[in-house]
């Protein structure tokens, strides 16, 4: 069984510090999941990520896919009735891995066609969100 810590762990504090958001405000309405265009590509929904983060379930949060398939579209942020900027929470989750020097994308492994086809803004934003 996974350990669930009801108190603010360092992990929770770190997520809150980087995101500037009080994740305790989330009341699990699921509006973010409903507005997320990319939830189907992930294993858990934005709402589920929020709950796991509230509970300090560090491994679950860091290993889930949702923050990595997030396209920073801010639909969730725009619609959260509790005023949480969920996209910032997603960024904090990504950064907790990236700051350990764990990349999601390796620029040198992209196919030559991808690099030739995509506009610079695609690569620049991807590397900003997905490389350490």
């Amino acid at each position: 069984m996974k350990k669930i810590n009801p108190h603010k762990t360092n992990f929770i504090r770190k997520v809150e510090e980087i995101s500037g958001q009080n994740i305790g405000l989330c009341y699990q309405c699921g509006t973010c999941s409903g507005s997320c265009p990319n939830f189907a590509e992930a294993d858990i929904l934005p709402r589920q990520l929020m709950r796991r983060a509230q509970l300090g379930m560090k491994e679950d949060v860091l290993q889930s896919k949702i923050a990595w398939v997030c396209a920073s579209c801010l639909s969730c942020t725009a619609n959260c009735p509790r005023g949480i900027d969920i996209a910032k929470v997603m960024e904090a989750v990504r950064l907790l891995s990236l700051r350990e020097n764990i990349d999601y994308v390796n620029p040198r492994e992209l196919s030559q066609e991808t690099i030739a086809k995509l506009p610079q803004i695609a690569m620049i934003s991807s590397f900003r969100k997905h490389t350490a």
Binding site: E41, S72, C73, L110, H130
Partner: peptide, 18 residues
Amino acid sequence: TCCGSYQAVANPEIVINR
């Protein structure tokens, strides 16, 4: 609605769906 944005690099299937 988001077009998938920079996921064109890491997860192009997202962009196709969008």
